[in-house]
Design a protein around this nucleic acid. Structure first.
Lengths: 236, 236
DNA sequence: AAGTGGTCTAGACCACGCG
DNA sequence: GCGTGGTCTAGACCACTTT
């Protein structure tokens, strides 16, 4: 019944090649006319596919030059470590403080789990992000084991879970919901972030939705915002 | 030299009518074919115009039914009061605690002003948002007087500055940058929000960019997040 | 001048919602 | 069945970038 749409086929074809590194970042895609020939279609359809990739943040269009593959940095809320002020200027190191392991769902998760997730065991891991050698974010993560095999410590690409998902599993983060609160640091958190117990801390609970049905990523973050406030940008 | 683009003309035509209330919220726009006839063009062009309005968050498309005008609620960061958890369920009251008046730029503003703004006087006002009768957000706002006349207390539509801008001046908020910090409440803030001095508070500094060149809105918010955490959602 | 993306025309057929 | 939006074709001309 459901005919696959041509533009969608083209879109996914190109996306896989970007995710796999075949179309490298900062390089240009084949021209619209070349893509037309390859898929035996018209520019309208090819442009629709490219428009989708543009919306998803995989490419940028340059009039007279071509469609350039860009580092995916669509501001997905505050969580992408790139969302930090000057994450590009500063050196951000990610340390895996608790290796991925099978665990039970933690009650701190601020979102209701699906029935599917309730039934499944979950994978838990913890990381601490450092800027200039000092810890700024403590991050707990969970996901349902029945939606994705257990990730191995070596699988993290540059300490990033999202990059791993994209390049190894071709899974993209599609959206997120988050809850922010200002709280005082518990003893444990204070210790991890090298601050005093009772200092104000930004607490972020987040659920990421992915392109893989049933796979959500849950996060629980504690951010020391005194030196590095959380910054983000939205645009029309 | 610069030919006005047809789709852009159509886009602006419809936008003005939505902003002015001529195309009411929850009503349907004329069909694509009707718009084609009205402007003597083809569906490709009309659909391009509608796509832009879709991206801007003015309309939603419903297959088989039409294009519906929606309340503009594009998640522009955390600041739209609608970003609060259940702002639709709870009753949000906005109280103007300091009427718009000419002032000097406050040094708490976390963003660099343009030269144009530096030269201009600025308009300052303060509001407190209440949910169920209890204060949850203290909000300071500034904008350059030379970019927009001084707004009058009666001009606020439902206590909203954005609605006023849209419906009275046809100015839309195009984007925002913000900085978030967890801090402890000063005596003054504690008093306004009826909490204890030293309680953790979420501080948000924001700059809104508008469709009117040179007009930026600066905000400085203090949010009591214990009972009403800030929530927001992103989608692919 | 040649190649790229941006806009636009004038059609066609399909999938969805509703009476 | 009819009107709506969704997809697609096969062209055309324009604006921008590079050689």
């Amino acid at each position: 019944m459901k005919e696959p749409k041509k533009y969608h086929i083209i879109q996914e074809y190109i996306k896989k090649r970007i995710q796999g590194g075949e179309y490298a970042i900062d390089s240009y895609l084949p021209s619209e006319n070349d893509i037309c020939k390859k898929f035996g279609t018209t520019r309208t359809t090819v442009r629709k596919a490219l428009d989708e990739l543009l919306k998803e943040g995989f490419i940028a269009k340059e009039h007279g030059k071509g469609s350039k593959v860009i580092a995916r940095r669509k501001s997905l809320g505050l969580l992408t470590i790139k969302g930090f002020s000057g994450a590009i200027d500063y050196e951000v190191d990610t340390i895996l403080t608790k290796k991925p392991d099978i665990s039970t769902w933690d009650p701190v998760i601020a979102f209701a789990l699906t029935e599917e997730e309730e039934r499944s065991a979950c994978v838990y891991f913890q990381r601490v992000r450092h800027i200039n050698g000092s810890p700024v974010v403590l991050e707990n993560n969970w996901y349902a084991l029945n939606a994705l095999e257990m990730i191995k410590p070596d699988d993290f690409i540059d300490g990033s879970f999202f990059k791993t998902l994209s390049q190894k599993y071709f899974i993209e983060v599609m959206g997120a919901e988050q809850e922010l609160r200002a709280i005082t640091a518990s003893e444990e958190i204070a210790k991890s972030l090298k601050i005093a117990t009772g200092d104000p801390i930004l607490h972020i609970s987040v659920r990421f939705r992915t392109s893989k049905p049933n796979l959500n990523l849950y996060g629980d973050l504690y951010c020391k915002t005194t030196d590095y406030p959380i910054r983000n940008t939205y645009f029309g």
